[in-house]
Design a protein around this nucleic acid. Sequence first.
DNA 1: TCGACTATAACGAACGTTCGGTTACCACAG
DNA 2: CTGTGGTAACCGAACGTTCGTTATAGTCGA
Lengths: 180, 180
Amino acid sequence: MDKSELLALLQPTFATYGFNGASVARLAAATGLGKASLYHHFPGGKNEIAGVLLRQAVEQLQSKVFVASGKRNSPNERLAGMIDRFSEYCNDGQSYCLVALFAQEQAPVIDQPAIAEQFAAWRTVLAQCYEADGHKPKAANRAAASLVNTLYGALLMARMTDEPKLFLQAAKRCKNQLLN
Amino acid sequence: MDKSELLALLQPTFATYGFNGASVARLAAATGLGKASLYHHFPGGKNEIAGVLLRQAVEQLQSKVFVASGKRNSPNERLAGMIDRFSEYCNDGQSYCLVALFAQEQAPVIDQPAIAEQFAAWRTVLAQCYEADGHKPKAANRAAASLVNTLYGALLMARMTDEPKLFLQAAKRCKNQLLN
DNA sequence: TCGACTATAACGAACGTTCGGTTACCACAG
DNA sequence: CTGTGGTAACCGAACGTTCGTTATAGTCGA
């Protein structure tokens, strides 16, 4: 059992129960290993696991979601692509974002200023697309902030109510709105 | 020290640390009482306290926020009022919503189907306003869902980054959008 | 035989909870 | 006014459990 397999088995437990709710016993059970065996792979214990998964989530958002890929495409297409990739990231609203989850619990693995910077950077990426699409700078910033808010709000809503479709519908609305 | 005072002292601890993170020791410390004394007021222990606070939050959203008050006002003014009252509810983005927090941790005090119903009802209240404002039923439903998503998304964002202004700005944008 | 891996069993600390008993307060009989 | 009884409020100390962690030892392919 190698490390990336383990992490894949561990992630859902954190995503389901949050940092505090994911006990080492539960985490070990999720992998099929004994608690002590987990410590062989992650000597830093629970904090190390959570830290790796958190960095993984941020990295994924950074490299797979909030990138204005396809320079040949129109700004709108690039924005739509980001929405689609965020949708993939959260499994169409079925999986929650560890960054949001850990941040809300004030988990010890969270570096809040860094998270704030990260989200600001992602908003900037979005804003640049909106600007390239003809929005004035201020309007572009507003639209970018709105989009991130809506996506995360929809994801939160989907989780609260256990209705992933609430996310899918919101994502669709966001994309439709780009066509104006 | 009466019960409502106690609850007021206890709420911030839950709001800050979440259900799992709010230990009885912390809760007791927040009130200045000993742990045993808390059990005098709340024999049901931590679950009872969290349950009361949760019901309080839902009740507040129900009776103070998502009510189409002021029948004489225009639908837009009523929607704007709800945004304002939600803003008050979350202290301009500085306090988090216990419903959202507990729901995300899958806290034992949460009845997810009930929460889902509750939010559906609130979306309906909003949708009726949008309809009264001339939107077609489907468009009204979409607008209502978007508004809730955005408000909660902005609140989540504000908490994640510890920047309440992200919420205030979003609330302002929502209100401006009503004027079209 | 060695090193990577897993498991059993236990550790101290913190958890939520309960017990036994002390204080503070107030009604009321003397 | 004093004294007595009852009750609500409160607390220190401990309960049993679970937490995250670790010491120790066994398994097994190379």
